[in-house]
Design a protein around this nucleic acid. Structure first.
Length: 153
DNA sequence: GCCAACGTTGGC
DNA sequence: GCCAACGTTGGC
């Protein structure tokens, strides 16, 4: 069982959008970064938990917890020219991009902001989110860091 | 809107 | 395989 942090811009897809989705589930599509894809492909398992992180907004931070409810499978939005993340180089017979299904679990009791996470950098050594220049939209979280972050809640 | 820090692309 | 140009991410 692994732990993750997944980023989303709340204007595009927020924790409430996931909560209100049919079955409280949705596809985590649009990942177009090889490192993030490889995490999904190689390390994500059904039953894993992930922090839902709001980025590019007034107060970026962790807003909830969701569950990974599928393994990685082809991201069909890469095949559709009308999709924002269409990639003509992704061959349906050999898909370049993958996605997983995620299910809403709960919101955190409050927003655990990025600034607060940074204030606790001493307890979060090597946490990818606060590493310099980090741009990953999917990143692993160690059990130790997961548990510590939840004590901030 | 700015811009630093990346990742990707493509010419050579 | 190098690397400059370009595009994107995401905090501020």
């Amino acid at each position: 069982m692994n732990y993750w942090l997944i980023k989303s811009e709340p204007d595009a897809f927020s924790i409430d959008d996931l909560k209100n989705a049919p079955g409280k589930k949705d596809h985590w599509d649009g990942i177009r970064n090889y490192q993030a894809r490889n995490f999904m492909r190689d390390d994500m398992q059904k039953g894993d938990l992930a922090f839902f992180y709001h980025s590019s907004c007034a107060t970026p931070g962790i807003v909830g917890i969701c569950e990974i409810v599928s393994g990685a499978y082809p991201d069909h939005t890469a095949f559709d020219p009308s999709e924002k993340y269409f990639d003509p180089k992704s061959d349906p017979d050999n898909p370049r991009w993958l996605m997983v299904d995620v299910k809403y679990r709960r919101k955190t009791k409050r927003l655990i902001s990025l600034s607060e996470i940074k204030e606790n950098a001493g307890r979060l050594e090597d946490f990818a989110l606060i590493r310099r220049g980090n741009r990953l939209s999917i990143m692993p979280v160690s059990k130790k860091h997961w548990d510590f972050i939840l004590t901030l809640e």
